[in-house]
Design a protein around this nucleic acid. Sequence first.
DNA 1: GAACAAATTGAAAGCGCTTCCAATTCTCAG
DNA 2: CTGAGAATTGGAAGCGCTTTCAATTTGTTC
Lengths: 340, 340
Amino acid sequence: MTGIKDVAERAGLSVATVSRALSGKGNVSPTSRERARAAAAELGFVLSYHASSLASGRTHNVGLVVPSVHRWFFSAVIEGASAALLEAGYDLTLYNIGENPTHRHSVFNDFLLRKRVDAVIAVSLELSEEEIQQLHAVHRPIVGIGGPLPGASTIRIDDTAIALKATNHLLGLGHTKIAHITGHEAYDQDFHLPGTRRSGFQKAMNDAGCPVRPEWIVSADFTIEGAYAAARQLLASAPERPTAVFAASDEMAIGTILAARDFGLRIPDDLSVMGIDGHDLGNVMGLTTIDQDAKGQGALAVRTLLGAINNGLILEPADTEHPTKLVVRTSTAVPKTSAS
Amino acid sequence: MTGIKDVAERAGLSVATVSRALSGKGNVSPTSRERARAAAAELGFVLSYHASSLASGRTHNVGLVVPSVHRWFFSAVIEGASAALLEAGYDLTLYNIGENPTHRHSVFNDFLLRKRVDAVIAVSLELSEEEIQQLHAVHRPIVGIGGPLPGASTIRIDDTAIALKATNHLLGLGHTKIAHITGHEAYDQDFHLPGTRRSGFQKAMNDAGCPVRPEWIVSADFTIEGAYAAARQLLASAPERPTAVFAASDEMAIGTILAARDFGLRIPDDLSVMGIDGHDLGNVMGLTTIDQDAKGQGALAVRTLLGAINNGLILEPADTEHPTKLVVRTSTAVPKTSAS
DNA sequence: GAACAAATTGAAAGCGCTTCCAATTCTCAG
DNA sequence: CTGAGAATTGGAAGCGCTTTCAATTTGTTC
């Protein structure tokens, strides 16, 4: 196995100089740099990153912790982060903790403490004080995506404001009988996302003087399948149907549209539907939504982290609000009843 | 920062013994093992995996290379692999090479050669001889998912047979006017998957004496959106419509169903649709499909790899065929025309 | 209880790099 | 041409573990 020693020999330089030349750091004359590079290329030499890491303390690797890889938001964040890391020459270690609480525990109490990552990005996970402490104890900066994290830097969207904006879009079209598909209680642990969006909905309704009917607030698990089932129930109560549904995520909005079709309801004539996310299927489904640029959030998290790492700065706990955009498509319209 | 030295001191043992105790290898008396464990726990000590890797040559890390994280098949494989690795105490380094050819190049010619992974799993990527050679040169076993790989172990399904089975399901119901949604040329690079499934379709049609109409073979990019557009074109030619569509993937089948609805076609009365995959949305959409257990393939790849690593064996190039299962739901039925 | 085998242990030599430090070479003003 | 300071270089000491090898302890057998 060729090592840096072989490269040094071939280039007629010392190991130290080759190391400096290859890493790009330190002062090396252009001549030596070129010779080192050439020798490395000829030998097909690639640095061993363990050895580098051990000696330098820098791993060139970022840990990304997600609750799932299937839900659209998470894969979009992964995509954004992975591209940004690849460009920077960093590895991405993925921890998909899923539903299993044991997995979460071992990730935070073992995997992440193995000092294999320079930093961690936690997506939609409300870390406990302890989890954050442990990471800080091994000097691993953290960026959270999806909500505030005590003592860590976070990137998030203003969930209440967004829900307000979405609901107002519907109200603005003339809807008053609006239902809401929220997330299950269980998902409220992490940043109270369902609750926050729900309260934005309620505030908008109250402000507009529209009654919020409890039976028109149903919950699902943030998936298309889950919302499909929930929406079927919601729409089954025939005469007393809402004229619009605001779902807490695009996937749930899509589930709602599918359910509506089963009932022969035309979108948007019989039912307006909107979501939050900016899902790829939005175009196909003609879904009105609030685009939160998940990919961009992943990329931003990486940039934030790398900036801190490269400047050797401590990452200041800061709360960055990511911009969102209302995208109006064909799933929302003036209610037929009030139009006619 | 507490190191293994501190643990040794606290436990009143030598560093060597603590290392043996913590790694579980080597002969250590139960007493010492317990004392080492206790000391480590008290100090909150977690092994530095760089140092371990450097000393032992084993990284406890597997690289997973995927062309995308968004398409269902890939995220299912990631999910299966990630769970299996987590259980085994292994890290998963994800390389999402995406559309960018530069990314692919740097992953295979740089990232994977950094000796940071013990093994690599390549999903739906037809590696070049050179790529395989390079990996073998650094003694990294490879498992390919999705098709045969020269000199590497692979897990795959029999695409031709599956397409045959799927088409026969449709033929068996009495359909003769069957269209096929295949993948774009561009996707044919890797394992000729679109071509293989298409030829299974054609063979079944020929065997049944049914003409294959070229205009009823349309291609898309394996996404719901892409197939939606393709299916709209297919279904636009009103009177001469097929009575069934066999899509080369579930996502494309779903796109087809969405397009069919736009034309007011009822599934399965006016159009039978089936796919291949076992997508999570299959249930909601009532999609008949051939389930290929992508999650299981990911888990199997990990087991294969870890088995080889742990036994210090060279991974024999073997071609494992993963079982598939026809799942009949409500998107396929006897054609109305022939039924009436 | 002696003699030998088996189990357990610790000292020390790396694993393949980075980086500190001191030595050397280069620059250029005087 | 000289000397001071800057730029470049190489030697060597680790980074925090694993593992070999030899020494020590424990267990067995007759």
